[in-house]
Nucleic acid binder design. Sequence first.
RNA 1: GGCGAGUUAGCAAAGCGGUUAUGCAGUGGACUGCAACUCCAUUUAGACCGGUUCGACUCCGGUACUCGCCUCCA
Length: 476
Amino acid sequence: MLQIYNTLTRKKEEFKPLDGNNVRMYVCGNTVYDHSHLGHASTMVAFDMIARYLRAKGYDLTYVRNITDIDDKIIRRAAENGEHYTELVERMIASMDEDAAALGIQKPDQEPRATQHIDGMLEMIGGLIEKGYAYAPGNGDVYFRVRKFEGYGKLSGKILEELESGARIAVDESKEDALDFVLWKGTKEGEPSWESPWGNGRPGWHIECSVMCKCMLGDTFDIHGGGPDLPFPHHENEIAQSEAANGAEFARYWMHSGALRMGKEKMSKSLGNFFTVKEILEKYPPEVVRFLLISSHYRKSTNYSEDTLRMAGEKLQKLYTTLKKVDDPFNEFWVPEDEVELTEEVEEVIGTLKEKFFAAMDDDFNTPEAIAVLFDLSSRINRIFVDRSKINQVRKLRDLLVELGGILGILQDNPEAFLKSGGDVDEAWIEEMIAKRKAAKKAKDFAEADRIREELLSKSVVLEDTRQGTVWKIER
RNA sequence: GGCGAGUUAGCAAAGCGGUUAUGCAGUGGACUGCAACUCCAUUUAGACCGGUUCGACUCCGGUACUCGCCUCCA
């Protein structure tokens, strides 16, 4: 039984899809005015993991992740660059896709863009005005009348009076109430704009999600997700707009990922303490980054540092080392595939571990606990290599390790390729050095052999002497 | 100021009212020319103060500290 923590009720709830086996999920994606930083990646990976697990559970998932392709920051950045905003947008979407692919993030089923849904927005805004939930003061803007919507604050726990007293909301003469938020912004000179009944303008931030949810998933759907800074005001405003316009419950389960931290503080654009995904991928294999992001619970903050990233690499290396050992046809314990038998004992182990993995994931997607199962599996495989009598079981355990890893979006690479990745040393040169060392060893010149090992190690190349010869990997 | 979350061993990070989380690191041993990998054994916990209980890291109350949201922000 899958339990999901619902921000709306502030507790874990049993997950029951609205429509049988079909699950509909909408996640707020990026505003594409710059390259993604690791915080963006963190949220994308979290919901990718969630999507993969829902599918692994057998649900028929429709996953929508939007792209905000028009807003103040995009307009400003494009102007700074002296380019048309669509050029900037296309470039940043390509960059985001590249990062996502590297991190093993599967494409959502739909990636709607705000500017593709202007008509739907005009329709929804018109409807809100008709119902008295919105007003156009005549300056080209349209505002949502927050006090008119009774449930305002139910997601974020905000109380209207306290929001009002917090004097951080910009005073705007044309608003009836300082709390009202903009649905449609009248255009300024030189800005991109669309025609509307209230004059040329562009969408406010929140309306796009309400409209795209309705268009792709219907008035009511199962899961709405996003990053840690979205419950207020963005999601609160979405609920107000959608429920006022549709007269129906909006999303049933609200999920929010935790912040990615640099030391004690949240990594964010406004604090300026961010690394782009591309900067990090220059130094670390993408799967290591993904492993770090899933090695703490999705709702908790993840601590990013050189150290945590290095440790993530070491852990992943351990798992891949196990996989490589099983796959290696020169391994002394290797047996042909058709001689692999599924004994009762191994069947039971597989069943138990699979159950443990799913139980962990069923508990609000507890990836740290699920990963512990992978290490359990890895240890069992390694022990089998010590206790040769059970060798015929090992491939079945390997298959399970790869299968469960796949649900988390890891361990799908070729083990040897992974172990040799991340270095910047010429492979032919390494082989040459290994050959020289072999000759030195044969001549019992161990001082020379050790010197060569040290030289390679200084370039992060670790040598391992096996019965079948010397192999190498990149130190993590 | 309001609302919310957190504080676990050297580091990272989970579950659980009584029985090993897990990984890295450390220590001892096996293996190795030496290593690496791996295996075996093992040391380090639960911010602080109370309460409930036969028994609390786990439940309750308080204190301290940290973080997030309240403004664009994944």
